[in-house]
Structure formats: structure tokens, C-alpha cells
Design a protein around this nucleic acid. Structure first.
Lengths: 154, 154
DNA sequence: GCCCATTTAGTTGTGTGCAACTCAGTTGTG
DNA sequence: CACAACTGAGTTGCACACAACTAAATGGGC
């Protein structure tokens, strides 16, 4: 393969993931507009609906986001009346994110989102599950590579 | 499937694409640090190395980015001395982005990026090409769905 | 008990990504 | 020619994402 072909292939591959992610985001933006949520805010709500109240730290682990992203995001959710933040009594460093009544109630309306998203992908359940598995493996490999790079650089 | 399972699966799928995209970004950030480029800036440079000078409009079509993103990004590339912007004489609305000598020279150093990225994915060429095809189809379907949503809403 | 490394949130600054807007230049129509 | 519609860049405002930092609280070693 020539240099030109390598660069071209590289662009296609890496761009396709970037583009797919943004396309997903666009569809979510449209579907979530009614709920008044952005896509990352919706992810936070999904985690809370699934696990119940969590400290910011645990939210970050679930979503691979640090406090620099989560702090203002959760503040916006609090501003919207969907969650409440409370310092833990046991550990004053920790802030627990609680669902409000309104936040809990929003789950009912959010149930219509998954089928609409599934339909938008044009994929059937098996294909989606397969893609999910591939992307998980890819992410794991990329994380390991980033770790190796960071070690090599540091 | 129960509501809970649906929401959970939905979170996993959509999150996996988001996470993979961010993991890719992290690896690029480390590898591109030496070149002084961000990942989107690198994508712009790849397009310019491949197609030669282009108006901002065409760059946007290649990368699916609008002027709101591209204008400041190209300005930063200009600030770094990699490109030059020139108003078209034929159509005064159009701004053509030219590679500078420095921008052209950077391509040589950028040739080491694709093999490092390939290695970071932990995938072989066939798997990467297959993933690319799946993601392209997914993006096409999502774009069509977004179009349909927008029509329904508007 | 005291000091220090660690942990948890939060803040600041930079760079996208996108909607909504402005402005200048171009084109189609009567 | 005049005028309205359109087009290409750019600007503004908002919301992530992340690096680098600060501040407060905790826990371990002495």
C-alpha cells in the first residue's frame, strides 16, 4: 500500500467512527428535545434510573467522565429540577446525586426513546448487540494503547 | 424484554459508540501531540493533503462540519502556520484554504500516525475495513432518520 | 496526635460541535 | 435594471470533553 493510500484509509476509518458518533448525537438531540435533555444528560439520567442515587465519583466511573465534565452537567440537571445534590454525612468530600420526584417521573416519558433510536439505526437487535460487542473490544484495546502511550511518554 | 432491560440495553449500545469515539480521540491526542494538532485539525490536514487546496465549503462537505466549527478551526491552523486563507477572485464569498510549505512538509511526519493508530485498535486490516463499512451504513441510516424526524417536527 | 499522601469535587481554560444569527456577494425573475 | 431569494463565511452562545489546577476532607505512618 502506498503512503497516500494509507493516509486515505486511515482517514476513512477514524472519520467513520467520529461521524457515526455525531450522527447518533444528532438523532438523540431531536428525540430528546421533548424531554429537555442533551445526550450526555440523558446518559446520566439512565444511570440514575438504573442504579438509583450515586456519588459523582461513581457516575463518572459508569460514564468515563471526570468531574470537569460532570460537575457543571449535574448542576444543569439540578437547575432543571431533575436531581438534587447532597454532601455525604459519612464522607464530606463526596456529593451524592439524588433523583427528584420530577426526575423519577421523567423515566416514563423516556421509555419511548429506545425503540425510536433502534428504529433510527436501521439495525435489528442481533446486529446492534454484535456492534456493541465489537465497540467494547475496540474501546478496551484503545484504552490499553493510550495507557501504553502515556507510560512511554511519561 | 422489560422496560428496565430496554433502557439498560439502549444505554449500553449508544454509550459504546460514544465511548469508542472518545477513546479514539484520546489515542489521537497522545499521538498527535508531537505534531501540534488536535484530532479534528488532523482530519482537515488529511483532506488537504489528499485533495489539495479547497474552499471552506468543500472541506465542510468532506468532514460534515459547518462553518461554525470550521472557521475558528482553520483560523487556528492558520495561526500555526500550516495553512493560508485566500478569498476567491471568481466568487468573493468563497475562501480557499491553501497548504503552506510548512503544512505540506508536516505530511511526512504524519505518515507515522496511521500504523500507530492501527496498532492501537488491536484489529487487523480486514476487521477495520469491515467495521468501517458497518459504521458507514449506520451513519447513513441515522442521517436518514434524523432527516425524517426533522420533517415530522417541522 | 501530627504530618503527609490520597481522594473527591469543583474551577479554569482550550477546543470542538452545533444552532441561530449576521453580512457580503451572487443569482434568478420580472 | 431592480429586487428578492439564495449562498458562503463568519460570529455568538451554549454544552460537552479534557487537561491542569485548587480546596477540602480523609486516612495511614510515625
Amino acid at each position: 500500500m502506498t503512503d497516500t493510500e494509507w493516509l486515505r484509509l486511515n482517514r476513512q476509518i477514524c472519520f467513520s467512527l467520529h461521524a457515526a458518533s455525531r450522527a447518533f448525537n444528532s438523532v438523540y438531540r431531536l428525540i430528546l428535545k421533548d424531554l429537555g435533555l442533551t445526550y450526555p444528560q440523558y446518559l446520566v439520567m439512565l444511570v440514575l434510573w438504573e442504579h438509583g442515587d450515586l456519588p459523582v465519583k461513581k457516575l463518572g466511573e459508569q460514564l468515563r467522565l471526570d468531574s470537569g465534565t460532570l460537575s457543571p452537567l449535574v448542576k444543569r440537571l439540578e437547575g432543571a429540577g431533575l436531581v438534587r445534590r447532597e454532601r455525604s454525612a459519612q464522607d464530606e468530600r463526596s456529593v451524592r446525586v439524588h433523583l427528584t420526584e420530577e426526575g423519577t417521573a421523567l423515566r416514563e416519558r423516556a421509555l419511548e426513546v429506545p425503540p425510536r433510536i433502534m428504529s433510527a439505526t436501521g439495525l435489528d437487535l442481533a446486529e446492534v448487540v454484535d456492534l456493541h460487542a465489537r465497540l467494547e473490544r475496540l474501546t478496551t484495546a484503545l484504552d490499553a494503547a493510550a495507557e501504553a502511550e502515556a507510560r512511554a511518554a511519561g
